[in-house]
Design a protein around this nucleic acid. Structure first.
Lengths: 247, 247
DNA sequence: GTCGCTCATTGATCATGATCAAGGCAGAAC
DNA sequence: GTTCTGCCTTGATCATGATCAATGAGCGAC
């Protein structure tokens, strides 16, 4: 349901406003809502709430009330197995929506921890559903966002199931690069917010392997590594590694 | 929105009827719809459509029209990487809903192939969304089903990222066992519908490793294997393997 | 500045699972 | 029945990445 209001400028202005309210890249930008509809969303979405580096936005087992949109900053989400091993399930940056897993049981099933000082918008889910009933575009979009998460997870499964260490690291760097670029940051030079161990957990590797592989890429001139600062020199070399993944 | 109709018996009868129409375990059973509401679902859901063993229900890249509920039979879903390597992303049996990944792009992102002669119900998604707007319970349930898929995928990521071969196989057998039991089949004795290679693809292992591990479990008296027939002898031994997963 | 802590790097060795290879079994086609 | 084919099993060897261990760099607290 695209905007039926003729004054496009106003519509867009409102949309921009709400989205800069909260940087709802994933939730708002592609929606094409009318001014009226946008106002409803505006009302629902809370103003940014700060989360300090190292703090948990939520933890597994806590009751589910709201989805969160990352307004600013960087999060990891992770599940913990019975014996306490952590599996990082994702890294999330500005505009990403997190907490979708909790809808299934009304309990959060993973931890979300800020990897730098961050801000989030809260999206109370019950109210979101109500709004979704009134505004089909929102209903549909929520389905889309959840579906996209499923597709993303399948990609990770492919990575974990089929790729070698080098291919995983290359894919990881390319993915980060692309996401930074989409947000207007440099695609070739960025700061890792996570430790080697967290990267390893996400990619199914030990931290030593992550470190060694990054060093190797540097030796080969693919990238430059300085602690957490990454500079990609030969992006095509990385791309070839990934597309060459022959198991 | 639970049924507000007093005649519970009728309601349940209708529900049973629609669900046996299609074995919509995942979609219908937990809904608590009214007679009226159930009729709407009834009208929407197509009668069973057969899919022969080996045939694809859909393939990656095909346009998305409908979700599918497995009415009878057994499916695998898999994504294929650029170079042609297959990663099985799931095995699906009676009552499971598949195709959720396709909502994100309006294209199917994986293949769904029947591993035995099967039957599915088609759930046209556009109409489902319409119905969801009228019946909040359906809207909510669809969100739940998608969320559950995300949680399931996170579980697989944990398995692929942290577990050793033996732990993966044990977890796989326990999962199958549980799902058969939920459907009224034996939890301790069942027939694998998939090849060793497909199991391996799902679990991130080579077929030889799958075979060896099953043989090893048999030697240890945990299970009995006869080709694709599995009998679980010491379920607790398998459970302990999984919960002991120390990476 | 020093101390103390976390995180990262690098080396040496080891173990797990992949790979290569040969053979066997079961079911379908004839 | 026989043959053919696809799937499975088992053995031998190899390679990747895990593990163990030591050192070093960065950074905040004081």
């Amino acid at each position: 349901m695209l905007s039926t209001i003729p004054v496009q400028d106003t519509s867009i202005k409102h949309l921009r406003q709400a989205c800069s309210n909260c940087s709802l890249r994933e939730l708002c930008l592609p929606l094409g809502l009318s001014v009226e509809e946008m106002r409803h969303v505006d009302e629902l979405v809370s103003q940014g709430r700060p989360v300090k580096r190292g703090d948990a936005l939520y933890r597994a087992g806590e009751p589910f009330r709201a989805l969160f949109a990352v307004k600013l900053g960087f999060f990891k989400t992770s599940v913990v197995s019975e014996d306490g091993r952590e599996q990082v399930t994702g890294f999330h940056m500005t505009g990403d929506l997190i907490g979708l897993d909790a809808v299934s049981t009304d309990l959060h099933t993973c931890d979300a921890v800020a990897l730098e000082d961050s801000q989030v918008c809260e999206l109370p889910f019950v109210e979101m559903e109500e709004l979704a009933r009134k505004i089909p575009a929102i209903q549909h979009h929520l389905y889309k966002v959840m579906s996209r998460e499923i597709v993303r997870d399948h990609g990770v499964m492919l990575l974990l199931g089929n790729m070698k260490a080098e291919e995983r690291i290359a894919a990881f760097l390319l993915n980060l690069s692309q996401r930074f670029a989409q947000r207007g940051y440099s695609a070739s030079s960025f700061h890792l917010r996570m430790t080697r161990e967290e990267i390893g957990s996400y990619l199914g590797l030990k931290l030593e392997t992550v470190s060694r592989t990054l060093s190797k890429f540097q030796e080969q001139g693919y990238i430059k590594v300085q602690n957490r600062l990454i500079e990609i020199i030969q992006i095509d070399a990385l791309r070839q590694l990934v597309s060459n993944c022959q198991g």
